[in-house]
């Protein structure tokens, strides 16, 4: 019993210490952001690694998710004779929910894990300490550009995901199942609101980008500098990011659409 209480206490202390370190890390990261104004080339370089290299997985996933939505949506709507509302169903599902959420999950798996592994390896090979010895702050030179790149990339990737998804649903709905293309696009245009739907989706994707990139960078920076430590940190990035995305999605949806 005592041992159980002791391990519970140890776990609690470790968790709170990590939370504290994570928030201190966030503060230091934010303090490093103004320096990027004069060195935006560092951010552009990271935009390529974090954003551009994630485009392929987003395109393919978005296309298939849209095609599945098109098929499933048609099968449900056709029972009510409302198959021409397929465009609305697909666009609202993607723009409000699936676009930001699935993109963030894919982003955590593709870019988040890569960021953690990169920073963790830089730490274990003393590259970060080496920079400090050259009076170069790793927070400004390494961490801040990657964070800003993640923050910029996520909403753009989510927008690409939603656009490709809608196109995939149109391919299936119009090309395979015979839904009228005029009805598909016009109903979508009429029922999808710029502020209510699209802007809220963009806000969600920015929040997810913030959280996923923060978790990924912190896990790498806080990793035990061994191969096992970096491996565990990479796993933690994906798991914690997934929990954070799904939990925050509920909170944001409730705030945006739940009339709370």
């Amino acid at each position: 019993m005592i041992e159980l209480l002791r391990s519970l206490g140890r776990w609690g202390l470790n968790t709170f210490q990590r939370l504290g370190r994570g928030h201190m890390f966030l503060v230091q990261m934010m303090a490093g952001m103004p320096s990027l104004t004069f060195r935006f080339s560092l951010v552009i370089q990271q935009l390529f690694y974090v954003g551009v290299l994630s485009v392929l997985i987003i395109l393919i996933s978005g296309l298939f998710v849209g095609m599945v939505l098109g098929l499933q949506g048609y099968n449900t709507l056709v029972d009510f004779g409302a198959e021409e509302s397929l465009g609305v169903l697909v666009s609202l599902s993607l723009v409000r929910e699936l676009g930001p959420v699935v993109t963030a999950l894919l982003f955590a798996g593709r870019a988040g894990s890569a960021l953690t592994a990169e920073i963790g390896l830089m730490k274990s090979t003393e590259q970060l300490s080496g920079m400090e010895m050259m009076a170069v702050d790793p927070m400004k030179r390494i961490i801040a550009p990657r964070f800003l790149a993640g923050l910029i990339s996520m909403p753009l990737l989510a927008a690409i995901f939603s656009a490709v998804g809608i196109f995939g649903a149109f391919l299936i709905g119009h090309g395979l199942l015979g839904v009228d293309d005029g009805a598909f696009w016009s109903q979508m245009q009429a029922k999808t609101d710029w502020y209510e739907d699209i802007l809220n989706g963009v806000i969600k994707s920015i929040v997810f980008g913030f959280v996923v990139t923060w978790i990924a960078l912190f896990e790498g920076y806080d990793a035990t500098p061994t191969s096992e430590g970096v491996g565990r940190a990479t796993t933690r990035t994906v798991v914690h990011s997934a929990f954070a995305i799904l939990g925050l999605d509920f909170v944001l949806t409730a705030l945006m659409f739940g009339d709370i």
């Binding site: 090979t125 003393e126 590259q127 300490s129 080496g130 010895m133 050259m134 009076a135 170069v136 030179r141």
Partner: peptide
């Protein structure tokens, strides 16, 4: 400081590693 591992930045070449402190 010279680290035991060298601590060279692995994503840039030898020239850029030596130029790094000058550029910074």
């Amino acid at each position: 400081m010279l680290f035991q591992s060298g601590a060279l930045l692995t994503d840039i070449n030898v020239f850029e590693n030596v130029a790094f402190p000058l550029r910074e």
